Deep mutational scan, measured.
Amino acid sequence: MAAGGDHGSPDSYRSPLASRYASPEMCFVFSDRYKFRTWRQLWLWLAEAEQTLGLPITDEQIQEMKSNLENIDFKMAAEEEKRLRHDVMAHVHTFGHCCPKAAGIIHLGATSCYVGDNTDLIILRNALDLLLPKLARVISRLADFAKERASLPTLGFTHFQPAQLTTVGKRCCLWIQDLCMDLQNLKRVRDDLRFRGVKGTTGTQASFLQLFEGDDHKVEQLDKMVTEKAGFKRAFIITGQTYTRKVDIEVLSVLASLGASVHKICTDIRLLANLKEMEEPFEKQQIGSSAMPYKRNPMRSERCCSLARHLMTLVMDPLQTASVQWFERTLDDSANRRICLAEAFLTADTILNTLQNISEGLVVYPKVIERRIRQELPFMATENIIMAMVKAGGSRQDCHEKIRVLSQQAASVVKQEGGDNDLIERIQVDAYFSPIHSQLDHLLDPSSFTGRASQQVQRFLEEEVYPLLKPYESVMKVKAELCL
């Protein structure tokens, strides 16, 4: 049975990233139509530049190519590739079939990587351009969430054990800070992308030097003109047959890092959902379990974690691919890159769409948070109580021993009897502590235990987050809708 299948058929496997999760716009960027249309555009740009620099290419040939950029006979191309065992030459023939007058000058002087690699770089750039505003929107939604809850005390956790208090907004800023680093890295790697350009079979530009009869300047002009037509500021000066596969490492490393950030955020949300302090959106008709109707599973956060793990592992592909590119190139890269580049971007696209949807509907339960604080705060307040007693004339050592005994009794009630923490009640009825009984409410005010959390939130948002989001103001209103 021949390899390949009808990918629109229910009898043929289709990647869930495309069929179930990723956005239509990201799927289109990695589609065959987008790819092969870009090949034709690159052939047109090459012909236009070659004509401008004096090669015998007519206006009629150029116009014929322009008129057929979208006229792609995919069936013919597939048949040609089956016959020739070469995808680029299959599309040269297919393009030439609908451009008979231009057929002889299509791909003039070029090698397969002229269309293959340059198209990949265009796709990487455009895919990054799709991700950047999506990530900015996630940051914006979380920034709104953090600002609104900047002063809401909550129990902090280290080692997932109760620690000092923080605020809900401050905790959210930990998430935002990681995503801001990801946004900066995505922008950097996007701006650092260079075009492969017009380089020939081993990167020496020998074929173009021959076409222009040894004119170095025209060869350099050709490279520059096509690079500018493709919208790049610069091209690699040095290439082998391909652009260095280190570029793929750079791009997928940034995406993998984004995956790590999203995994951490969504894990926190899942843990908070278990504590009943916070939940992701839950639709009115949504079913959490087929057997347990009360369940409210954090399905979206779980999906993000599941896909983020996949995204983090994909960076190993370009690392290994770059390491086995012998001399000017081997074909070890080809099949692998067809999979890992598309999957990385479709996965990143999915987790950003999902995280935006989550961040637009996060639900906080202040009463649950308050109750958990009441359970733990008495123990945390013991040092403040000791200091207040010393100020009232008591002995630190005597007070410490009193607190120690009462704390152990209260802990026994919590752990052995399943009761509430009654340390404060014990202190309130103990005559030894009568000098500070009137101060206990103040000493137990949760806001006095959150330090500068709310001020940190305000400063972080104003100095770091809002300036970073400013270039994306025009796209901030787009909502994230999930079908599944």
Rank of each mutant, 00 (worst) to 15 (best):
G5W: 11
G5M: 14
S9E: 13
P10V: 13
R14I: 13
A18W: 13
A22Q: 09
V29P: 15
S31A: 09
D32W: 07
Y34Q: 10
Y34T: 02
K35N: 11
F36Q: 09
R37W: 04
T52K: 04
P56V: 11
E60M: 15
M65C: 06
K66L: 05
N68L: 03
L69W: 02
D73F: 14
E79P: 00
E80W: 11
E81G: 04
L84E: 10
R85V: 11
R85Q: 01
D87I: 12
H93T: 05
T94S: 01
C99S: 10
P100G: 03
P100M: 00
P100Q: 05
C113W: 06
G116Q: 05
G116D: 09
L121I: 00
A127F: 03
D129A: 08
D129S: 08
L130Y: 13
L130S: 03
L132K: 10
P133D: 02
L135T: 09
L135C: 00
A136T: 14
A136W: 00
S140G: 14
R141V: 06
F145L: 13
K147G: 02
K147D: 10
E148W: 04
R149E: 04
P153I: 00
T154I: 03
L155E: 07
L155V: 04
T158L: 11
H159V: 05
Q164A: 09
T166N: 11
R171M: 04
L174I: 05
M181P: 00
D182H: 12
Q184M: 01
Q184W: 12
L186Q: 03
V189N: 09
R190P: 04
R190Q: 05
D191W: 05
D191Q: 02
L193T: 04
G197E: 12
V198G: 04
K199M: 06
G200Q: 14
T201Q: 07
Q205T: 12
S207V: 01
D215F: 00
D215S: 00
D223G: 06
D223R: 14
D223M: 06
K224L: 09
A230L: 01
R234W: 00
I237H: 13
T239G: 06
T239Y: 08
Q241V: 08
T242A: 12
K246L: 09
K246M: 05
V251P: 07
V251A: 15
A256S: 14
S257N: 11
A260Y: 09
A260W: 11
S261D: 12
N274G: 08
K276H: 01
M292H: 13
P298A: 09
E302F: 08
L307M: 03
L307Y: 02
A308V: 09
H310P: 04
M312R: 09
T313C: 14
D317R: 06
T321I: 10
A322S: 07
S323A: 06
V324D: 11
T330R: 05
A335R: 09
N336I: 10
N336K: 08
R337P: 07
F345I: 07
N357V: 02
G361H: 14
V363S: 07
V363A: 10
V364F: 00
Y365F: 11
P366L: 13
K367P: 09
R374N: 15
R374F: 01
Q375I: 10
P378G: 13
A381W: 06
T382A: 11
E383R: 10
I385T: 15
I385Q: 14
I386N: 04
A392K: 00
G394L: 14
G394Q: 04
R396F: 00
E401W: 13
Q408I: 02
E417P: 15
L423D: 13
L423N: 15
I424T: 11
I424C: 10
E425N: 14
R426L: 15
V429M: 14
V429R: 10
P435K: 06
P435M: 03
P435A: 03
Q439V: 11
H442F: 14
L443Q: 05
S454G: 10
S454E: 06
Q455G: 11
V457E: 00
R459I: 13
L461F: 03
L469Y: 06
K470R: 10
V475L: 14
E481D: 10
L484I: 15
L484V: 12
